[in-house]
Design a protein around this nucleic acid. Sequence first.
DNA 1: TAACCGTGGGC
DNA 2: TGCCCAAGGTT
Length: 289
Amino acid sequence: MSLDAQTLLDWFAETARDLPWRRPECTAWGVLVSEIMLQQTPVARVEPVWREWLERWPTPSALAAASQGEVLRAWGKLGYPRRALRLHAAAVDIAADHGDVVPDDVDTLLALPGIGAYTARAVAAFAYGKRCPVVDTNVRRVVARAAHGAADAGPPSTTRDLADVAALLPEEGAATYSAALMELGALVCTARTPRCADCPVFDTCAWQRNGRPAYAGPAKAVQKFAGTDRQVRGLLLDVLRGTSEPVGKARLDAVWSDAGQRDRCLHSLLVDGLVEQTADGLFALPGEH
DNA sequence: TAACCGTGGGC
DNA sequence: TGCCCAAGGTT
């Protein structure tokens, strides 16, 4: 049996990183904040920001009381700032409709902004110990290799991926088992250069047994960044993050030479609610003026 | 489904 | 250097 539960639980107990959101004293709110911040952002960059947030906003209602601009500033350069706005919106919902308590039910969590199939189950499992499959990119890769004998996971399919992992979950310690699968993918069974010599399930790995065949699935789309709207939006928002007072458009125009793209990006930031225009036509982060 | 949404570090 | 990758979600 590949991915034996006891083997992984033992390995996790010995080698897991001591991350603050994994500590027993961490609240469900702390877990939720960590999961949102960790979406597409590495642990090393999240940790210091997470500590600041939990000290400053220890409960959903505390964050809910902050302005969007404060929240965006505190988000800093974690990337994908719409996550910060959605987390703020989720905090408002939790404070208003859930008694300031992070829900423990997957369907209730799924109804909150910014919480999808992964995050809902991660919170249910890691904050409340629920036995539900938690599937992220690490888990998909680990299961593809150790259980299916492929070099990497194929295109994601939430239904199939959840069923795959559900079949592996032990009756006891399921949440820790999921954390161990993720940790294995993050530290050992990595995307580029897996450290198979250090793998606790090396002996039962189907990919090893198959002779480590190369990835056979469809090519994965690589995202460009340089020159895209994403880069320009990031530059525009960075100007507003760095000033306490609203700025004129000329100040924003300085960050990018292509006027058409610049204006399109500024407009989309306004539509997304990441930027606000003041009564006198200046631009600022939302909710601060 | 596939494209879009930031940012920075490693190789 | 340029490309790949990182605890996804939304549309």
